[in-house]
């Protein structure tokens, strides 16, 4: 209930911040109004700019904002709302041109005033930001260069848009309006300062040292971190953190990974990382003693946020990592509630953590179903994918009372969500973790 109230409060704050320019324009209005379409177009430009400015706050992982929603919701919201904000901003010049075609001359960079050049450049940069984010995988743009260009282009776009407003000048002619833009500007720059300067300083003061890099089955490595000169972090099983290694926290070379260790382990934390891309393929090269920085914990994919009489974990591939953390924590807590694990893997050899899972069975009330895509000869377990039939046959009678955690590749998650829906599992008893935040 408290989380819901905080969520609503943040939505109201968001709306107020987005609409602040329009409120000030109405309050401090001294000039006569202009044509309806022109005012509408300008209103869309202003709210679009506010929304873009607020995007920095959404991705700053500012805890009071992240906590009530969960970081996955905040990041997906950031992605979706950016498309809407871009459409508003795009509508701004289109409506002006439609209303007054003579304004099309502003598109000529040789004759256009500075205000139009700033506005157009901001729009082009924003279009690039949106295009590169939505099409990153399709055009094979790697995460690191995308992340750098994303930050630079977005900051550039907002600065250019602010310059556009200042240069047009029509809406900054009273002290109240000037004050508004100064406050908004300070707020946006403040968010950037928090993200790029203050937070890295705090991280530098809380470093970790790599204690061990352990090879696991399925091209996965577990990296164990020991806090250096501090008590480490307390996380909930199933959560994740952003890892920076071989770089300073001031660089933005950080990657999100789930904890795989028990949350009851004192000090030490472990992340398990599967070789999937540039950075993850180099994790095995990390040597013990290397300094690292962790920003976290984040996420609400945790049994601690979803009390239930029993749990069902549905994991595919590396999706087993946060599940391992929850299983290990349940065992360490001597929790004897029934737990079912449906674990889809390519083959038996590459089934990550299978020995650890077998060992956990002796310490807790755990039932495991391995599902192999490519079984070896003699395999008598389920083959292929986690299907509705497999779930229907093996879930207990009280399955609608249990809480379900799903983590794995997108297609597997979709299929499992559909299967659970067909089995009559209420949607609010499903929690899914998607690794593709960006």
């Amino acid at each position: 209930m408290r989380r819901l109230l905080y969520s609503i409060a943040w939505i109201v704050v968001y709306l107020i911040l987005v609409l602040a320019p329009l409120l000030v324009l109405l309050i401090g209005q001294e000039r006569p109004g202009r044509e309806l379409w022109r005012e509408f177009s300008i209103a869309l430009g202003f709210v679009g700019l506010s929304m873009m400015g607020l995007q920095f706050l959404l991705t700053s992982r500012f805890r009071p904002v992240v906590r009530p929603f969960g970081i996955d919701v905040v990041y997906h919201f950031h992605r979706q709302i950016s498309i809407i904000a871009f459409l508003f901003i795009l509508a701004h010049p289109i409506m002006l041109f439609a209303f007054n075609p003579r304004l099309l001359s502003l598109l000529n960079p040789f004759t256009a005033p500075l205000s139009a050049i700033f506005g157009l450049s901001a729009l082009i940069l924003l279009a690039l930001v949106v295009f590169l984010s939505l099409g990153r995988l399709r055009i094979n743009l790697k995460y690191e260069p995308w992340r750098i260009t994303h930050g630079l282009f977005a900051t550039g776009a907002v600065i250019l848009a602010m310059l556009h407003v200042l240069e047009v000048g029509y809406y900054i002619d009273t002290p109240a309006k000037r004050a508004l833009w100064i406050v908004l500007g300070v707020f946006w720059v403040g968010t950037l300062f928090y993200m790029r300067i203050l937070k890295p300083i705090l991280m530098v003061r809380r470093p970790y040292r790599v204690e061990e890099v352990r090879a696991e089955r399925g091209n996965t490595h577990t990296v164990v971190f020991q806090p250096e000169g501090h008590n480490g972090m307390r996380f909930r099983p199933g959560q994740f953190a952003w890892l920076t290694v071989w770089a300073s926290p001031f660089s933005i070379m950080e990657h999100p990974f789930s904890f795989s260790s028990s949350s009851l382990e004192k000090g030490k934390v472990a992340l398990s990382i599967k070789e999937l891309g540039d950075f993850t393929s180099r994790v095995k090269e990390i040597t013990p003693g290397t300094r690292a920085y962790l920003d976290g914990p984040y996420g609400v994919f945790s049994i601690d946020y979803h009390p239930a009489p029993g749990y069902v974990f549905l994991a595919g591939g590396v999706g087993i990592t946060p599940v391992m953390s929850m299983l290990r924590t349940l065992a360490d807590r001597n929790d004897q509630r029934p737990v079912y694990l449906f674990y889809g893997s390519k083959d038996w050899e590459g089934t990550t953590f299978r020995e650890d899972i077998e060992a956990l069975k002796t310490r807790m009330n755990l039932t495991v179903f391995y599902v192999l895509e490519e079984p070896t000869e003699g395999w008598d377990g389920p083959v292929g994918y986690i299907t509705p039939d497999l779930l229907a046959e093996n879930l207990p009678q009280n399955r609608v009372e249990l809480t379900y955690f799903i983590c794995g590749p997108e297609l597997m998650m979709q299929a499992v969500e559909d299967a659970l829906d067909r089995l009559g599992i209420p949607p609010d008893q499903l929690t899914a973790e998607r690794f593709n935040l960006v």
Partner: peptide
Amino acid sequence: MRKTLANQLAIAIGIIILILAAIYALIQGT
């Protein structure tokens, strides 16, 4: 599920902002 929630939240907020921007234009415009 949570992705859908984020999408719906973004669309709802987008619509509210669009409506309020239109109301502003109605008040301000001639």
